[in-house]
Design a binder for these strands. Structure first.
Length: 953
RNA sequence: AGUCGCGUAGCUCAGUUGGUUAGAGCGCUACCUUGACAUGGUAGAGGUCACCAGUUCGAAUCUGGUCGUGACUACCA
C-alpha cells in the first residue's frame, strides 16, 4: 500500500466494475426502495449543486441497498427546451446560419446531433461522482415512451377542460422570442426614473385647477403609444368630474377616455394612471373592467411595430382605433424608443417632471433581458382543481417535507396560483398535439389522422399543427411515473411507485415539486414520493449564489481531479454573456484559489457535501473543510496500513488461509481496549443509522469521523501496540488485538461505504477475506446493525479512567517541559479499590502510552515525594519533581485549574443555595447538581492542598 | 410593504422535548519526525450564544420587541 492516500489510483476502475457487474440494478428483497434523479439538462454539465444532490441520493441509495432492499435509483435527463435551443442557435450563428433559414426539421436534426455529441458529458460526470444509478433504465424526456406520456396527459387534460388556449398577457422574452412562466422571471432591484407626462384634455376641457391637461407618471414611457385610457379614482374630488371625458394622446393623436377605476390610488403619484392594456398586467385588468381596447405596439423582438395591432377587450381584432403609429419611432428598439419619446415630450413641452425612482424590473432567467408583457395566444393549465388534492396530500401527511418548515413554503405558493402557461414558442420540445383548420378551429389529438377520424374531417380540409412546444417542466412533472413506463401498466410502476424520497433544492419546489405532485396525483392516483428531502443551495465561500455570469462556479470534477489556476481562470472567463466581467472574475478567482485547486478525490468531496447537509438553507462551500476530509481519508488509509502490518500481511506476501483462520477462530483473551472499541463501535453504528434514517447526513458523517479518528485511530490503535509489541503478551492476547483490529475496521468500511464508496471498496477487498466476510463487493454487503449485547458500559468508564491518567501525565509533561521521550516515574495516591483494579488491569497500557518507567501505588500514610499532580476523579496522579522541575510553572498550572474549578463550584453552590431551585427542580436534576458540587468541592480541596505543598517549599 | 428564515469561537457550522463545565472541523500558540499517518502527534488559547425585556427554580433553546442579514411574494401609474 502507498504511504499516503492516492484517490486517483483507487477511484480509477471501481465504477466500471460495479456498472459492468450490474450491481446498480434493482435486486434484493420484496421491500422496495426507489428514488428518482432530478433530471439535469441533457446537454449541460454538472455544478456543485448536482454534486451535493448526488452525494445525498447515492448515500441513501447505497444505504438502502446494503440494507437488502430492492433498490432502484432511476437516472435520466431532460431536454431543457430553452437552454438547449439557445446553445444550438448560438453554434449556428457562429457559422452564420439562422434557425429560421434552416427550417424546423433541419434545426431539430442539429439539436439531436448536439445532444448525441454532448449528452454523454453529464452522464460521465454522474459516473465520476460514484452515483450508483441503474444506467440500464436511463430515460430522456424526449424518448418515444416519455413523449407518449406527455401527449396522453395533454390530451386528457384538454378533454377535461383543464387545458385551454387563450389570448392573454404573458411574460414575453424578446430575446428568446417565447413566452415564459412567471416562475422563470427573476425580479431585480434597479435604479430608474419616473417620467411625468402631460396628457392634454380633449374638447377644450380643463381641470378643477384650470389646467388644460392631466399628468400621468410612468416608468416605461414607450408604452404610451399603446395607451387606450387614463384611469382616475372614482372618489377623487380632483378628477371625478372628468370621468367619461377624453384626452388627446400626444404623439399619436388618439382620443382616449378617462375612466373611473379603483386601481387608481389617490395617494399615489398624480392620481392619474395611463392605461396600456396590451403591455401591463394591471392595465390589462383595468382594461377588461372598463372595456378598453388593447393596442399592441411591440414586435416579438421588442421593437416598435410598423403598424399597431388593435384588439377589442375580448382579444378579437377590431377597428376601434387606427393602426397608425408615429413614423419617427417605427422600428426602434424599445429602450431607444423610450429615450426618443421622452425627448419628444420634452421638445413639445409635455414633459412635466423626471424623478429618480427605485423599481423592480423583471428579467428572463435564461435570456437575461427585460421581460415584456405581451398579448399572445398561449396554452394554459387550469391549476386550481389540480392543486386541491396536491395540498391535501401534504396536509394529511401522505407527503412529508424534510425539514418540515418547507411545507409552509409549499402551502403559501399553492394558495394563490396562477394558471400555468405551458406553451413555448420554441422548436425543441414536445410539440403541442393540436391542429387548426383554416377557420382557426382547434382539434386536439394524438396525431393528424386521429384528429381527422375523431372529428369526421375529410382529407380535403386543411389542417396544420400548432407550432409551439410544451414547457420542459410539463414533461418533468410526469417524471416519477413516466420513467417507469406509464401509461402502460408496468411491473416497475407497480414495484417502485410511489417513490420513497425526492431529493432537491428548495429553489425548485414550485417549478417542479408542486407540479409533480399535481400531475402524479391526477394521473396515477398516487403521490409521486412519500418524502421530499429539501437541501440547501451550494454557495461560494462568500455566500454568493454560484452562477456562470458571476464566474464563481465550480465543476465538482475539478475538485476531484484538481485544476491549475490558469485553467480555472480560463474556464470561468470563457464564453461569458458579459465579457466585461472577465477581469473581475479573474481577480476573484486568483484571490480565492492562489494555487488552483488540488486534487481531493471523489470520496473526500462526497464526505464534505454530506457533512454540510444539515437543515440550513445555505451551504457555503469551504475548501478547508474539504481538505480536512481528504485528510480523513488518509487517516483511514493509514489505519489500514497499520492493521495490515499488525497482522503480518504485506503486498507481496498475503496471509495464508491457515493464518486467517487462526486470527478468526483461535483462542482469544480480549483486553479492556478490545471490549471497549467493540462497544464504542456499536454506539457509533447506532448513531449513524439513526442519523441516516432522519436525513441528518451531517450527524452521520460526524459520528463516523469521530469514531474512526478519535476512538479507533487515536486510542484503540495506540492501545493495541503495547499488546502486539510486548514480548510478554500471550498469543491469545495478540490474537485478540489482531482480530479486533480487523473486524472493527471491516465494520467501519461497511458503515462508511454509502458516504465514501471508493476507498471503502478498495480496502474492503483486502480486509473482508481476512475478517472472514464473503462477497464480491462491499456494495452488496449487509449494512452493520446495532448490537446491544456488545455494548459494555464498564469498559467505557474504565477506558475513560485510563485516558484521564494518560492525559493528566501528558499535561504535566507539556507544562513542565518534560519531553515526551523522557521516561518518568509516577505514583497514585488516595485511590479507591476501583482505581487499583484498573491500574492492575492496565499497567502495560499506561506504561507504554504515558512513557512511565515505574508506577507506585501509595496506601494511606505512605510518604510521597514533592510532585506535580493531576486529578482523576478523587485519585491523585503524582509525577515527582526531580529537582530541576519548574516550581513556578507548576504553581501556575495548579492555580489556573483551581480558579476554574472554584468558578464552577460557586455556580453550582449558588444554585443549591437557592431554596426555589431546591424546592421546584426535579429530584433527578437536584441529585445531579449535588453530585457535581461534591466533585467540585473535592477537587478544590485537593488542588488547594497541592498548592499549599508547593508554596511551602 | 408582507411572509418565512437566520444571527453560537478568527472562519465554516452542530447544539434533538428548556437542566452540558456550550461542541466539531479549519485556523492560531507551544512542543515533537517515536517503528500507520507531518494529509501526522501531544498539550493549549479562544465564546456576555446579536441586543433588550419577559415566562421559569433554571433560557443558546420558549414568548414579545429592537437591530442586522438573507430568501420569497406583492407593489412600484
Amino acid at each position: 500500500m502507498d504511504k499516503t492516500y492516492q484517490p486517483h489510483e483507487i477511484e480509477k476502475s471501481w465504477y466500471k466494475t460495479w456498472e459492468e457487474k450490474g450491481y446498480f440494478a434493482p435486486q434484493g428483497g420484496d421491500d422496495a426502495f426507489s428514488i428518482m434523479i432530478p433530471p439535469p439538462n441533457v446537454t449541460g454539465s454538472l455544478h456543485m449543486g448536482h454534486g451535493f444532490n448526488n452525494a445525498i441520493m447515492d448515500c441513501m441509495t447505497r444505504y438502502n441497498r446494503m440494507k437488502g432492499k430492492n433498490t432502484l435509483w432511476q437516472p435520466g435527463t431532460d431536454h431543457a427546451g430553452i437552454a438547449t435551443q439557445m446553445v444550438v442557435e448560438r453554434q449556428l450563428a457562429a457559422q452564420g446560419i439562422d434557425r429560421k433559414e434552416l427550417g424546423r426539421e433541419k434545426f431539430l436534426e442539429k439539436v439531436w446531433d448536439w445532444k448525441e455529441e454532448s449528452g454523454g458529458n453529464i452522464t460521465n460526470q454522474i459516473r465520476r461522482l460514484g452515483s450508483s444509478v441503474d444506467w440500464s433504465r436511463e430515460r430522456f424526456t424526449m424518448d418515444p415512451g416519455m413523449s407518449d406520456a406527455v401527449q396522453e396527459v395533454f390530451i386528457r387534460l384538454h378533454k377535461e377542460d383543464l387545458i385551454y388556449r387563450g389570448k392573454r398577457l404573458v411574460n414575453w422574452d424578446p430575446k428568446l422570442n417565447t413566452a415564459i412562466s412567471d416562475l422563470e422571471v427573476e425580479n431585480k432591484d434597479k435604479k430608474g426614473h419616473m417620467w411625468h407626462f402631460r396628457y392634454p384634455l380633449a374638447d377644450g376641457l380643463t381641470t378643477k385647477d384650470g389646467l388644460s391637461y392631466i399628468v400621468v407618471a410612468t416608468t416605461r414611457p414607450e408604452t404610451m403609444l399603446g395607451d387606450t385610457g387614463v384611469a382616475v379614482n372614482p372618489e377623487d374630488p380632483r378628477y371625478k368630474d372628468l370621468i367619461g371625458k377624453f384626452i388627446e394622446l400626444p404623439l399619436v393623436g388618439r382620443r382616449i377616455p378617462i375612466v373611473g377605476d379603483e386601481h387608481a390610488d389617490m395617494e399615489k403619484g398624480t392620481g392619474c394612471v395611463k392605461i396600456t392594456p396590451a403591455h401591463d398586467f394591471n392595465d390589462y385588468e383595468v382594461g377588461k373592467r372598463n372595456k378598453l381596447p388593447m393596442i399592441n405596439i411591440l414586435t416579438f423582438n421588442g421593437d416598435i411595430r410598423a403598424t399597431a395591432e388593435v384588439f377589442n377587450t375580448n382579444g378579437e381584432e377590431s377597428n376601434d382605433y387606427p393602426t397608425d403609429l408615429p413614423s419617427e419611432f417605427i422600428g426602434m428598439e424599445r429602450f431607444a424608443a423610450r429615450k426618443a419619446i421622452v425627448a419628444k415630450f420634452d421638445e413639445i413641452g409635455l414633459l412635466d417632471e423626471v424623478k429618480d425612482h427605485d423599481l423592480t424590473v423583471p428579467y428572463g432567467d435564461r435570456g437575461g433581458v427585460v421581460i415584456e408583457p405581451m398579448l399572445t395566444d398561449q396554452w394554459y393549465v387550469r391549476v386550481e382543481a389540480l392543486a386541491k388534492p396536491a395540498v391535501e396530500a401534504v396536509e394529511n401527511g401522505d407527503i412529508q417535507f424534510v425539514p418540515k418548515s418547507y411545507e409552509n413554503m409549499y402551502f403559501a405558493w399553492m394558495r394563490d396560483l396562477n394558471d400555468w402557461c405551458i406553451s413555448r414558442q420554441l422548436w425543441w420540445g414536445h410539440r403541442i398535439p393540436a391542429w387548426y383548420d383554416d377557420e382557426g378551429k382547434v382539434y386536439v389529438g394524438a396525431n393528424e389522422s386521429e384528429v381527422r377520424s375523431q372529428n369526421n374531417l375529410s382529407d380535403d380540409i386543411n389542417l396544420r399543427q400548432d407550432n409551439d412546444v410544451l414547457d420542459t417542466w410539463f414533461s418533468s412533472a410526469l417524471w416519477t411515473f413516466s420513467t417507469l413506463g406509464w401509461p402502460e401498466k408496468t411491473k416497475e410502476l407497480e414495484t417502485f411507485h410511489s417513490t420513497d424520497v425526492l431529493v432537491t433544492g428548495f429553489d425548485i419546489i414550485f417549478f417542479w415539486v408542486a407540479r409533480m405532485i399535481m400531475m402524479t396525483l391526477k394521473f396515477t392516483g398516487e403521490v409521486p414520493f412519500k418524502t421530499v428531502y429539501v437541501h440547501g443551495l451550494v454557495r461560494d465561500q462568500e455566500g454568493q449564489k454560484m452562477s456562470k455570469s458571476k464566474g464563481n462556479v465550480l465543476d465538482p470534477l475539478d475538485i476531484i481531479d484538481g485544476i491549475s489556476l490558469d485553467d480555472l481562470v480560463a474556464k470561468r472567463t470563457g464564453g461569458l454573456m458579459q465579457p466585461q466581467m472577465a477581469a473581475k472574475i479573474e481577480k476573484q478567482t486568483r484571490k480565492h484559489y492562489p494555487e488552483g485547486i488540488a486534487s481531493y478525490g471523489t470520496d473526500a468531496l462526497r464526505f464534505t457535501f454530506l457533512s454540510l447537509a444539515s437543515t440550513g438553507r445555505d451551504v457555503k462551500f469551504d475548501m478547508s473543510r474539504l481538505e480536512g476530509y481528504r485528510n480523513f481519508c488518509n487517516k483511514l488509509w493509514n489505519a489500514t496500513r497499520f492493521v495490515m502490518e499488525s497482522i503480518g500481511q504485506t503486498d507481496d506476501k498475503p496471509l495464508t488461509q491457515i493464518e486467517i483462520d487462526d486470527i478468526n477462530n483461535g483462542h482469544v483473551e480480549l483486553s479492556l481496549a478490545d471490549q471497549w472499541i467493540e462497544s464504542r463501535l456499536q454506539v457509533a453504528q447506532k448513531e449513524v443509522i439513526d442519523a441516516l434514517e432522519n436525513y441528518r447526513f451531517d450527524i452521520a458523517a460526524q459520528a463516523i469521523y469521530d469514531f474512526v479518528w478519535n476512538e479507533y485511530c487515536a486510542w484503540y490503535l495506540e492501545l493495541s501496540k503495547p499488546v502486539l509489541w510486548d514480548e510478554n503478551s500471550t498469543d491469545a492476547q495478540k490474537r485478540a488485538a489482531r482480530r479486533t483490529l480487523v473486524s472493527v475496521l471491516e465494520s467501519i468500511l461497511r458503515m462508511s461505504h454509502p458516504m465514501m464508496p471508493y476507498i471503502t471498496e478498495e480496502i474492503w477487498q483486502s480486509i473482508a477475506p481476512i475478517a472472514g466476510k464473503a462477497g464480491d463487493t462491499i456494495m452488496l454487503a449487509p449494512y452493520p446493525q446495532f448490537d446491544e449485547s456488545k455494548v459494555n458500559a464498564q469498559s467505557d468508564t474504565d477506558i475513560e479512567w485510563l485516558k484521564g491518567v494518560i492525559t493528566g501525565i501528558r499535561n504535566i509533561r507539556a507544562e513542565m517541559g518534560i519531553g515526551p521521550g523522557k521516561p518518568v516515574k509516577c505514583l497514585f495516591r488516595n485511590g479507591s479499590e476501583d482505581d487499583q483494579r484498573r491500574l492492575q488491569a492496565n499497567d502495560t497500557f499506561l506504561k507504554a502510552m504515558a512513557k512511565l518507567e515505574e508506577i507506585t501505588w501509595l496506601n494511606d500514610g505512605d510518604a510521597a515525594p514533592l510532585s506535580a499532580t493531576a486529578l482523576v476523579g478523587k485519585m491523585e496522579v503524582l509525577v515527582p519533581m526531580a529537582g530541576n522541575i519548574d516550581v513556578a510553572a507548576e504553581l501556575n498550572r495548579l492555580t489556573r485549574a483551581f480558579d476554574k474549578n472554584e468558578k464552577e463550584l460557586g455556580r453550582v453552590a449558588g444554585k443549591l443555595n437557592n431554596p426555589k431551585f431546591v424546592d421546584k427542580a426535579p429530584q433527578e436534576v437536584l441529585e445531579k447538581e449535588k453530585a457535581k458540587l461534591a466533585d467540585f468541592e473535592s477537587t478544590s480541596k485537593k488542588l488547594s492542598e497541592q498548592i499549599e505543598a508547593i508554596k511551602a517549599l
